Simulated assay, not measured.
Amino acid sequence: MTSDSITFRGGPIFDGTHLHNSWAARFDNGQLADLGPQKDVAGGQVVDLSGDILSPGYVDLQVNGGDGLMLTDAPTVETLARMAKAHRRLGCQLILPTLITDTPEKTRATIGATISAIERGVPEIGGLHLEGPHLSINRKGAHDADLIREMTDVDVEVLLDAAFRLPALMVTLAPENTTETQVQTLVEAGVVVSLGHTDAPFDTCLDYFAAGACCATHLFNAMSQLGNREPGLVGAVLAAGNVSAGLIADGIHVHPQTIAAAWNANQKPGELFLVSDSMAVAGTEFESFQLEGRRINRNKGRLTLGDGTLAGADLDLTKALRVMTEEVKLPLEWALRAATAVPAQLIGNAKAGCLITGTLMRSVIRIKNDLSSATFASE
């Protein structure tokens, strides 16, 4: 699109909070200039949405790979750029590339590559998510048990430096291999600390939330469950009130009715949000890939190790919207917030999750009205 002024109309417009019918959005020179009822917004080239939804692009805080690559295989600027491009094709305006449990050397290389990618202007890279290595072996999932370890003072210093140099740093850790003091130190430096891959009991999880952890990684998966006598991390998230949690809403990792129950039970202001937990196959037709020498098979929406253990997800956030609305039975407006505004706010980038004056058209997506796909409005 080359016109200096473009007006989108003819479909619902989601502004990051509400889904508006009979509204229009005008972009002048690639920036949002006017948003409101159709009768009040006009100018330039008119694009008929034909019932499609105009929305801020997705914000995905858990992206392990894409375009045939895993971040852990080659943590370079080139890998990050290819991952970002693949996820842009899937509707993401912002991602946190995610390094799963690995060596200290690989962690430092990934931090350096992410900083370089942002300095070089790879626009979709919003920071970094380190999922491990300070997890529980009992809840390791597809993580390599040989690389899981306690957090040391050196690890803390590396993370503090990364938090200073990155726009956002998210760290998934378990109480089994960290201390409350370490969590408090990280949080004070701006790190988004998320509990995950842990067997910690309810009271311990509440203690870590009190120390500053504000999130849980892929709720229900690889964590202590909600039981009749021990509520676990799941119960702590739902009861804490100030804790958010990512959800892999593919209908496989978590049953839709379980998602619905959690959504209804969750205490505000913490909110649930959508993540893809995507792997190398994202944006490709590949049927398998290698994860640290282990073959991961892709079959009917599942990614599994040879023993059947789930290894990430074969998911994009448009599909997650479809699951949330058609199977979980949430209003589309709520599901859209969970894919845009909520994760954006969690990493301190609220502007990325909403349509406001000055929003770049290149960050706005057009979602098919049947929730089958999403493309950027500028492309």
Rank of each mutant, 00 (worst) to 15 (best):
C215S: 14
C215R: 09
A216M: 02
A216F: 00
A216R: 00
H218T: 08
L219R: 03
F220I: 01
F220Y: 09
A222I: 05
A222M: 04
M223G: 01
L226N: 05
N228Y: 06
E230L: 04
G232N: 02
A236L: 07
A236V: 05
V237M: 09
V237P: 09
L238F: 13
A239D: 12
A239H: 15
A240V: 12
G241E: 11
G241R: 10
G241M: 10
V243E: 04
V243P: 05
S244F: 05
S244V: 06
A245D: 08
A245S: 08
A245G: 05
A249C: 11
D250G: 12
D250H: 13
Q257K: 14
I259E: 04
A260N: 12
A261R: 12
A262Y: 02
N266C: 15
Q267V: 10
Q267G: 10
K268Q: 12
P269H: 04
G270Q: 00
G270R: 00
G270T: 02
E271R: 10
E271T: 07
L272H: 04
L272C: 04
V275S: 04
V275W: 00
S276W: 00
S276Y: 00
S278H: 06
A280L: 07
A280K: 03
V281K: 00
A282S: 07
T284E: 12
E285C: 12
E285T: 14
E285L: 10
F286R: 14
S288E: 14
S288M: 15
S288I: 12
L291P: 05
L291G: 01
L291E: 01
G293V: 11
R294S: 15
R294W: 15
R295A: 15
I296P: 02
I296M: 10
I296D: 00
N297K: 08
N297H: 11
R298H: 12
R298Y: 11
N299D: 15
N299K: 15
K300A: 15
R302W: 13
R302H: 14
R302C: 14
L303F: 13
T304L: 11
L305Q: 06
L305V: 01
D307K: 04
D307N: 14
L310W: 07
L310A: 11
A311P: 01
G312D: 06
G312A: 13
D314R: 02
D314W: 02
D316T: 09
K319A: 10
K319H: 15
K319D: 09
A320P: 02
A320M: 05
R322P: 02
R322E: 08
V323K: 00
V323G: 00
M324D: 01
T325Q: 04
E326F: 11
E326I: 12
E326S: 15
E327Q: 15
E327D: 14
V328G: 04
K329Y: 14
K329Q: 15
L330P: 06
L330A: 07
P331Y: 13
